[in-house]
Amino acid sequence: MVVERDDLLDESSSAAAPLPQEAVRVRLDRPRADDLADLVFLANNKTVAANLATMPHPFSLSDGRAMIAKANLHRPDTACFAIRLKATGRLIGIARYANVEPGGPIHVGYWLGEPFWGQGLATEAVHALVDHAFTYHDIEELQGSCRVTNPASRRVLVKSGFQYRDQAMIRSVGAGGSVPIERYTLERAVWKSLKGWGQGR
């Protein structure tokens, strides 16, 4: 669960590039209205919200509808995906990337529902997300971050090729205030060298 910026995705678009994006056990594609029940069930989790920047808690049906609607709008260098189990098609989380500011860095964010933690699914989803961003957009660098108290997200970022940059503070709605985060970056050149995810790792 990387710190994300939902407020930046008011015009997000998973239609910005071809879909779906496949991994071994998960698929990234467009969130749909029929995902609403799973989305609200999984997102309405205090621990999930506390690891993100703008996820409200409690997470309501109206929050879910708004998230799905935002994911289907258009904005350059931005995409918002449902993370789905390939075996069932069920939504298990959200992955996205977006401009932090016009002309600024592209920030990746993701979360998985708690029943799906600890299975390597987040790493697969982030690999697919990174591949999508670098393949379909003229992006030279991606940024990601996680709370310092979230070693699982740290491992996902590192396994995805991100390199530690520094620490900072960010306000988290779910945590109820400012929290320390670690910030990471992944350059296109590094991504190219790691394109065969999992080889020698």
Rank of each mutant, 00 (worst) to 15 (best):
S62I: 13
D77C: 15
T54R: 11
L52A: 01
G120M: 00
A50L: 10
D77R: 13
A43C: 07
L112K: 00
A95E: 04
P115D: 05
N72D: 15
P105V: 10
R75D: 11
G118E: 10
A66L: 15
H127S: 06
R75N: 09
A43S: 06
L121F: 05
Y110C: 05
R65F: 14
A87R: 13
K70W: 12
A125S: 05
G103R: 05
T47E: 15
I68A: 09
A125H: 01
K86C: 01
G113F: 08
R75L: 11
K70P: 09
R75H: 10
L121R: 07
A95C: 08
P105D: 07
N99W: 12
R84Y: 07
L112E: 00
R84E: 07
L52C: 04
L129W: 06
G93M: 12
V126L: 10
P105E: 11
R96S: 14
L129T: 11
G64M: 08
P56S: 13
R65L: 15
N72L: 11
P115R: 08
E101V: 08
T54I: 10
P115I: 09
A82Y: 02
A66V: 15
V126Y: 02
T123V: 08
N99A: 12
G64E: 10
H127Q: 10
R84H: 04
E101L: 08
L112I: 00
F81A: 01
E124L: 02
D131V: 03
A66H: 15
T78I: 14
E124S: 03
M55C: 02
K70Y: 12
W117I: 03
R90N: 13
G113H: 12
K86S: 04
H107Q: 14
L129Y: 07
N45A: 08
I92R: 04
S62G: 15
A71S: 12
E114L: 12
S62L: 14
A53H: 06
H57R: 11
G103L: 06
E124Y: 03
V126N: 02
H74S: 15
A87W: 09
G103S: 06
A122H: 01
